[in-house]
Write a protein that binds this DNA or RNA. Structure first.
Lengths: 199, 199
DNA sequence: TTTAAGTTGTACCGATCGGTAACGTTGATT
DNA sequence: AATCAACGTTACCGATCGGTACAACTTAAA
């Protein structure tokens, strides 16, 4: 029956990520996790440690493979600032609405669980830090991009970044409620108008 | 020891609402609920039925006592449309950030649980219907208010309403993450600018 | 071929989950 | 005074929670 590992760690981690994405941390049971990963509990504990460690690894994977890639739109050469921001937001919202993945945003969903008090400290820190990165990246743009400086956006860079981050949280919530991408795209446009970056 | 009820149904319901607001539906255990309500499990089952029925009553109470009151700002006489919308949004976000209550919005938080598949049908319908009411109320304003019609907002009333509702979901998520009201107020102003209602 | 390490599957652990049966007590009704 | 419904308390139900001990088995190295 055994002797050599019969599953792929990376595939298993991706499956676990999907479950956490759909159910959150507390809501994802080990039974559902291991079933989705195609392994049984002892294999999971030996490979990943425990539920908390598995969640951390799944979260890191989400950040790396799902969240970070959107940032490239912010630094696309030969593209106007407004278009870069719009491309970034559209990229994020598209993923929030994707039919293959669970609806919404893994980070925002799980970060919301922290306020419940049932989230361990390490995952909490990771989630807070990940959500902070979004705003930091935006602030970086608005304070250093020549076009942004020319538009005078650097003086309220943090508040503008907060607006965009808030909109993306709103669209994540909307997406989870079933609102389609087509409707949320107009939200992006209105949001850009609000911060003085009409497309 | 007994004979006559020793607790106030309304107070107990309010306590239960607070627990659901903080933990969500699945995350709120009967132990924590009954402890917060100051009663024991049999009393709770006799009075409210079961967890699902308790949640429905708590949710109805939230809608009535917490969500609906914000709507008065939308129809305040002698106030400009922009100011009415701003007052409404500020009122909502203020509650999301209130220190006495759990952070965020009861409705949005629990509606997010529906996508997990662990929410019974009746509560799901109630939550979906409650969140829809927000957009409906806004659409009503933008399609019937003379000032809105004069501004030409009636032609995209639904998309504007979606923008506002999305912003309020975003602020709820931000509030739950610990962002203070002072920072979220600027988000409201930018949001209003985006839909052509600068204050 | 023997040995040691590593893997899987099952069966189990104590704790907690939502929900309830049973009992003694109390207060209002008759 | 007798009755009965409603109450609070305790103790319990089967199911599931996260987590683990253990045995059967397979492989690679010795």
């Amino acid at each position: 029956m055994s002797g050599k590992r019969t599953f792929d760690d990376e595939k298993a981690l991706e499956s676990a990520m999907g479950v956490f994405w759909k159910k959150g941390y507390a809501g994802a049971s080990l039974a559902e996790l291991t079933q989705s990963m195609g392994i049984n509990k002892p294999s999971m504990y030996r490979t990943f440690g425990n539920k908390e460690a598995l969640f951390i690894k799944a979260t890191q994977r989400y950040i790396e493979k799902n969240a970070q890639p959107h940032f490239v739109h912010l630094h696309q050469e030969g593209t106007s600032l407004a278009q870069r921001i719009k491309n970034y937001m559209t990229s994020v919202v598209s993923e929030q609405c994707t039919a293959e993945d669970p609806k919404g945003c893994y980070i925002f969903l799980c970060q919301g669980e922290i306020a419940s008090g049932d989230m361990p400290e390490l995952p909490s820190n990771l989630l807070n830090q990940a959500s902070k990165k979004i705003q930091d990246a935006l602030v970086e743009i608005f304070t250093h991009d020549p076009e942004a400086i020319a538009l005078g956006l650097e003086t309220h860079a943090t508040s503008i970044a907060l607006c965009i981050a808030t909109t993306l949280r709103g669209t994540a919530s909307m997406a989870r409620a079933g609102i389609p991408l087509s409707e949320l795209e107009t939200v992006i446009e209105h949001s850009l108008r609000g911060i003085g970056l009409p497309s």
